[in-house]
């Protein structure tokens, strides 16, 4: 796991809405695209605040959920890479 700090790009907005059930979305407010999330991916993305490094984010994420740590680590790394590739998360912060 790396010690870089990431934050949500200003082109994106996280959304949690209470309809008949709770829905989680990520909006690209520039091109209008919408990504569907679930609680796990929403919580994960919300932890990237531009202050914590990726190690700290995973530690906090791991503390929030009960599951197989190795699986969580693989999922975390895969999603982190996807979000970096799509420039949803950007490098920066303190």
């Amino acid at each position: 796991m790396e010690n870089k700090v990431y934050a949500l790009s200003s082109s994106y907005s996280l959304f949690k809405g209470e309809f008949n059930d709770i829905k989680y979305y990520l909006f690209n407010i520039e091109d209008g695209s919408i990504y569907r999330l679930n609680e796990v991916s929403y919580d994960m993305l919300a932890l990237f605040d531009g202050k914590r490094d990726a190690n700290k984010v995973f530690t906090l994420f791991n503390d929030m959920y009960q599951g197989e740590k190795d699986t969580m680590m693989i999922d975390f790394k895969n999603l982190l890479q996807t979000w970096l590739d799509k420039e949803i998360l950007i490098t920066g912060g303190e």
Binding site: G32, I34, L37, G67, E68
Partner: peptide, 28 residues
Amino acid sequence: EGNKKEYQTPVFEEEQEMNFSKEIWEEC
């Protein structure tokens, strides 16, 4: 441990049939 949520595979999928409008949001 009792306060932890049950882990599920994270979902991240682009919606193909729906877009977001900043204008509609600010003012289906």
